[in-house]
């Protein structure tokens, strides 16, 4: 199942990349996708049946819209800090608790955090996520966990976990 999922993804990607439906191209794409999925699927999907749960696709769309919005906000935030004469920064590394189980969901959360205003994921140790924050605005772990990860966690939980 997991092989099939990665095979379909890589094959679709090949078709998009080449935009050519001649027989030679399809065969080459299928062979390459097969090799890739045999070699790498064990790193990507622990449970292939998740691809068949259609409600996940709906939450994926919601998540992408939120991600793009946060991404744009992040840029204005960084641009403001960079262009401001006094440079209002107060950087530090903070620790945030994770509530997600699967590795893929955790990776997606770390990616989203890197793309949101002023935060970069540094490392994951056990259940803790370490984050470099350009403006540490509060000292309370509950509050900043909510501020950094809470925005995405529920959507990622519904989509990938």
């Amino acid at each position: 199942m997991r092989y099939l999922a990665l095979f379909i993804l890589t094959f679709l990607f090949w078709l998009l990349l080449t935009l050519d439906v001649s027989l030679v191209n399809l065969v080459v794409g299928a062979v390459v996708a097969l090799i890739t999925s045999l070699l790498f699927s064990k790193y990507f999907f622990d449970k292939g049946y998740k691809f068949l749960q259609l409600h996940r696709y709906f939450w994926l769309l919601v998540y992408i819209v939120i991600l793009i919005w946060e991404c744009i906000k992040a840029n204005f935030d960084v641009a403001y800090r960079v262009l401001h004469p006094a440079m209002p920064i107060k950087p530090g590394i903070v620790k945030v608790k994770l509530n997600l189980q699967s590795d893929f969901a955790r990776a997606m959360l770390a990616n989203s955090i890197t793309m949101t205003p002023g935060t970069i994921a540094v490392d994951i140790v056990g259940d803790d996520l370490y984050i470099h924050w350009i403006y540490v605005s509060s000292e309370d772990p509950e509050e900043y966990s909510q501020k950094i990860a809470g925005r995405f966690e529920k959507y990622i939980k519904k989509t990938f976990d």
């Binding site: 840029n75 960084v78 960079v82 950087p91 793309m115 470099h132």
Partner: peptide
């Protein structure tokens, strides 16, 4: 920006968008 970590913040975010 002052150090590596803050510089990466601006490089990744503005560069990507």
């Amino acid at each position: 920006l002052p150090d590596v970590y803050n510089r990466l913040q601006s490089a990744t975010k503005c560069g990507t968008l």
